[in-house]
């Protein structure tokens, strides 16, 4: 069985897909950095940033709303920012009573809250577009080019490869557990502690299997000439359109920053 739920790459032929992964990683980071630099309430700049994002969507041949549809993953975290609505002094917008507290939403608090959400929402969309248009192994190569230490990129490459294999194993373990507890009659079975123990037992089993697998993988590496030093390949080459796209994207981002401060 394949663990396709883990695949985020969308195979299609587009301008953005053909770009060098380094450029895509760099522009993504620059865009997210730009969001962080925009002051609260820079509505015009936020709007322009979104336009930039929509253009990127279009040039990726994925449909204009591709990233929008997948962008709500970070929303639950908004809860932690909710206190800024009430805690920042400013002109009161609305007051209400909640359980024990009298809460007043201030205009500056509201401004800040919405700005945090917009920054987060824009950033996450660019990250979604990155993994949809660059295959993950290529992103790993890009990280190598961008000076991430090779031991880390190698661990990440192994993690990516075995994610699918071990994901399958977890899936089988959980299926077996469900089958057993269904046979026992009650769906979730005894106490929470007991259930946590079963989960821990599964984790232990998975640990031992993974440990043994790492041994066999090491043997397989030895058999093919590995002697402690890992050679890596960097098959990417920057071309003219990569440089130009990077330059244009940086200019656009610089413009966003200016627009945010007018």
């Amino acid at each position: 069985m394949h663990f396709d739920a883990f695949d985020r790459y969308h195979e299609t032929n587009s301008f953005v897909h053909r770009l060098d992964p380094r450029i895509k990683v760099a522009v993504t980071v620059a865009f997210i950095l730009s969001n962080a630099l925009l002051p609260d309430g820079a509505w015009i700049a936020f709007g322009l940033s979104w336009m930039l994002l929509l253009f990127a969507n279009i040039f990726s041949n994925l449909g204009i709303a591709f990233t929008l549809k997948r962008s709500f993953v970070a929303l639950p975290f908004a809860l932690v920012a909710i206190t800024v609505l009430f805690s920042i002094p400013g002109n009161p917008l609305a007051s209400f009573h909640f359980l024990l507290w009298d809460l007043t939403i201030s205009d500056t608090g509201f401004l800040r809250f919405v700005s945090i959400l917009i920054r987060s929402w824009l950033s996450v969309q660019m990250a979604i577009l990155l993994v949809a248009t660059a295959r993950f192994p290529d992103i790993i190569h890009a990280l190598g080019h961008l000076r991430v230490p090779s031991i880390l990129t190698t661990i990440i490459a192994f993690l990516y490869r075995y994610l699918f294999v071990l994901g399958d194993e977890v899936f089988r373990l959980m299926r077996a557990r469900e089958a057993r507890s269904a046979a026992a009659g009650r769906r979730s079975g005894r106490s929470v502690v007991w259930r946590a123990n079963v989960a821990g037992h599964m984790a232990g089993q998975l640990f031992l299997r993974s440990y043994e697998r790492s041994d066999r993988v090491y043997n397989a590496m030895l058999a093919r000439g590995y002697a402690g030093h890992l050679e890596t390949i960097n098959p990417h080459e920057l071309r003219r359109r990569d440089y130009i796209t990077a330059a244009l994207a940086l200019l656009a981002i610089l413009f966003l920053q200016l627009a945010g401060r007018l």
Binding site: I151, L159, L166, V192, R195, L206, S210, Y211, Y218, G228
Partner: peptide
């Protein structure tokens, strides 16, 4: 860890990732 560190850490990273998916119902 010596030279077997790379496959060990790589596969064990996948293990942690996979182990995070093992859940148990609380309430």
């Amino acid at each position: 860890l010596g030279e077997r560190q790379i496959p060990l850490m790589g596969v064990m990273a996948a293990f942690i990732f996979a182990a995070q998916m093992i859940n148990f119902p609380v309430a």
